[in-house]
Design a protein around this nucleic acid. Sequence first.
DNA 1: GTTGACGAGTGTACGGCGTACACCTACCGT
DNA 2: ACGGTAGGTGTACGCCGTACACTCGTCAAC
Lengths: 236, 236
Amino acid sequence: MAEQTKAARRTPLTRDRVLRAAVVLADDIGIEALSMRKLAQELGVVPMALYKHVANKEQLLDGMVDVVVGEIEPPVAGADWKSAVRRRILSARRALVGHSWAAQVIRTRSGPTPAVLAYMDSVIGMFRTGGFSVDLTHHAMHALGSRMMGFTQELFDASPGPDPRTRPARPQEDAGEYPYVRELAGAVAHDEGSVVGQGCDDQFEFEFALDLLLDGFERLRRQGWSSAGRSGGRTT
Amino acid sequence: MAEQTKAARRTPLTRDRVLRAAVVLADDIGIEALSMRKLAQELGVVPMALYKHVANKEQLLDGMVDVVVGEIEPPVAGADWKSAVRRRILSARRALVGHSWAAQVIRTRSGPTPAVLAYMDSVIGMFRTGGFSVDLTHHAMHALGSRMMGFTQELFDASPGPDPRTRPARPQEDAGEYPYVRELAGAVAHDEGSVVGQGCDDQFEFEFALDLLLDGFERLRRQGWSSAGRSGGRTT
DNA sequence: GTTGACGAGTGTACGGCGTACACCTACCGT
DNA sequence: ACGGTAGGTGTACGCCGTACACTCGTCAAC
């Protein structure tokens, strides 16, 4: 039974187990509080044990991104380019919203992991088979930016929140400055949320901007736009 | 002369001096290498001296953002809304490109500093006086997101770069996967840059997407769009 | 059955970080 | 002349990532 306790005492560590544990730990305590030491403790293991499975914390973060990206649904076949891209991006968004840290981590990676690259490849493919030139596809990908991964880049995160002290004072109810901000914030009116990003329907805002861009792409595609003219797409 | 050496030995610390020193230090060594200790050393002072002028590192970063935002040119008067907004955003971009860390820092602030708020207020004002409803202005601001501050959110930064080791292998020249990525990367062809974001004309990409959005806004404004319909702006 | 290599997990230690807290000291208004 | 105060100091604590040397269980080869 000694062997049994030993055998049962812990399932052996795996790169995969480490990454998944890191993901749920980051979900729980936030990405900035995630440390190798806490992760090791969560796994009932000494910190250095992790380094047998990931080279360093950077690679841990890379792996965590891949776990999340792996949750994106595969592309659907047989649809026009716009709805195909739209569905895929909204699926990516669905995968990312559950992990509020993912967007920030993805941005700080200095290059795409293979899983991300594969995802990008599939999106590019949708444009190309949808009749987009390489040129226009290229610029469309840039224009989408992080929106392609399903997260809009709001100016401020407004997500973590559990530490609202030492902030530079509520800008909300003080002096009568920022009249336009106040007007806009008042009109949004949901709850008492922050200036922008809180009390708003994030999903609607995301689709609003996404569709604005996709419609713009479609318009440029129809008129055979090319960057050679360098008009920048301006219509005025 | 003892007093003279003492007097001349150092100009007294100031919140402003601290912030400006932090900005140039971050410009030099990168934001992730910026520490209170290094900043103090740069100022010829003991680390704790800084805390007489900033409450903590978070507030230091807040202050650094305000310094950069302070470099944005004031708005120009008497122009149609679109070129006014366009000029202001491109000016913000000009202010931010010199400080490659600024975008990342702004994103990690949990709320807008007064200077940022003032800037946002002026942009909102441009939409409103340009004939936009509060509603459409609101969604336009969301759609602009961080682009309003002059930085596009590329998927990956590709900016720091001085530490290209321990990265998960060049995705460029290995197996024949990612055919679309390869096609696109090949077409861009400038240098040997990374998959996306390197070897591209960032300024062009920025204006391309910005104009796509501004044109979209204008179109919606003309047709009296309102979110009540919740069409999301789709045209198809 | 013994052995020896090997890989997973351990223990200790180092240097760097942010910052709490007590202290000193030069200056200034009274 | 003096007491308060604001700015700069020194020490120390607990956290971080991780280098490096180690133990120990497993398993293949003999």
